[in-house]
Write a protein that binds this DNA or RNA. Sequence first.
DNA 1: CATCTTTGTAAGCCATCGCTTACGGTAAGG
DNA 2: CCTTACCGTAAGCGATGGCTTACAAAGATG
Lengths: 103, 103
Amino acid sequence: MAYAEVFSALADPTRRHILEALRHEPKTVGELAEGQPVSRPAVSQHLKVLEAARLVSVEPRGNRRLYLVRWDGLEDLRQYVEHFWSDVLSAYGAEIARRAEKT
Amino acid sequence: MAYAEVFSALADPTRRHILEALRHEPKTVGELAEGQPVSRPAVSQHLKVLEAARLVSVEPRGNRRLYLVRWDGLEDLRQYVEHFWSDVLSAYGAEIARRAEKT
DNA sequence: CATCTTTGTAAGCCATCGCTTACGGTAAGG
DNA sequence: CCTTACCGTAAGCGATGGCTTACAAAGATG
């Protein structure tokens, strides 16, 4: 899994805003660019990064391109965080138990 | 919440390795640097970034400094991903329902 | 007190990033 | 057709990132 691509994709504020704008429904590049403080080509470049990170996908609609959040890419991220989280938590619990045992 | 700091901290492979090395037990800078392909000062700089992102914390032990994973910082990240995840999922479910209704 | 160990910080260098403007290509519409 | 709308890509520029080496500070150790 290429976590570097996913995390660095989410590191940029504009990219997170774009992704959050796609949370509820797919949108075209123009619609996405309208809500952002940067130019439309910049949004295109951001979308390219998000696509490489498997966080969005495209569906051509005639002249336009409809971008939407990718289900599976998000799931991978979720699992990574969840896994790490449970590891830290269990280590924390083991440490507590070790201290209790030492009394 | 400063998600940019968290995600850009996790974007770097070396920083992820450092964090994963701290998953089960705290370690000193020297111990952490030993497992990495970069110099010890580089590890120090990475730890500074991880600390600013609230992903690790420090406990001075005499001459050394013991680094450990921060519980709450990780929880914030987990909640962000989980929240986003559920949003996308519910939107996905609503779309399915809308299509079923249109038959 | 002198020395060694452990670590953070400063400076400098090269690569990468994010932005803009300019351009090309393809679909839509008169 | 000819023009307009929508979008991706190339080029170039300033800013940021990650690394190294060199140095400084502070505790451990004799």
